[in-house]
Amino acid sequence: MSAIIETQHLTHIYGHGLPDATTALEDVSFAVEEGDFVGIIGSTGSGKSTLISHFNGLLKPTSGRVLVGGEDIWADPKQIRRFRFMVGMVMQYPEYQLFEESVYKDIAFGPKNMGLDAAEIDRRVRAAAEFCGIPADHLERSPFELSGGQKRRVAIAGVMAMEPRILVLDEPAAGLDPEGRDTILSQIKDYHRRTGVTVLLVSHSMEDIARYADKVLVMDQRRIAMYDRVDKVFARAPELLELGLSVPQVTKIFLKLKEMGLDIDTDVYTMPYAVRTVLAALEKKKGVAGC
């Protein structure tokens, strides 16, 4: 597998050269494999948003390079739009970017900018709407009549309709009720599974990361603190807690159990895995007792 996104010594300084310059990213190098589902976590101000804004060239690196599909995206600044279509970006609270008179037209905005023909645009709009669970009869309605969660879905569909190879989402579930959160995230996961698109998901919820991501990138103080498979990262719970982050609630319980003297694995991060671990531990205990 080849790296679809790669950063090489990426540094970003806001207001570079001015006295109030602040460094937001420092020497960040990492690579995302095609088809991965990567969760990005980090406390506020750790540089997550700055990092993801580099992937589609909304920000230009102060130094270092950003490679998408093996190409330096800033090799020719005039070509930047090509990478914007390749890396679909869903910003925080994306429902505030809706502007068209109908849901259909709003979702079609991205594909239209790509210069596709009407039939292709129509196919993409309908496919994206379906993925995001937008009923066909909503397409002709004004996006402003919809509820918050529905608007969010329309905004996400607007990015999906560009059929990017990489989908970057900045807290797509922020401010939604628990049901809305689950729906949106599982739709994204489903989309990932069915299309094989690489997904980068920024989230503050460890539960969400644990449930949906394959890999986790932990940002801390403008640098990458950890970047590994989900179980390996959550196994380093004490370090995560030190960074001011939390671990999923199940992991917390297992850490507590270990602390209480139980012989049990602590790299547990999802419910089904927890059940298996508990059963295995019980089995072991029975075996010991049997002897």
Partner: peptide
């Protein structure tokens, strides 16, 4: 700040704002 955010969101969808 809001304008900046919206411009970025539309640029991400391929809007031509600076050319």
């Amino acid at each position: 700040e809001e304008t900046d955010k919206i411009m970025n969101a539309q640029k991400a969808r391929g809007a031509l704002l600076d050319s």
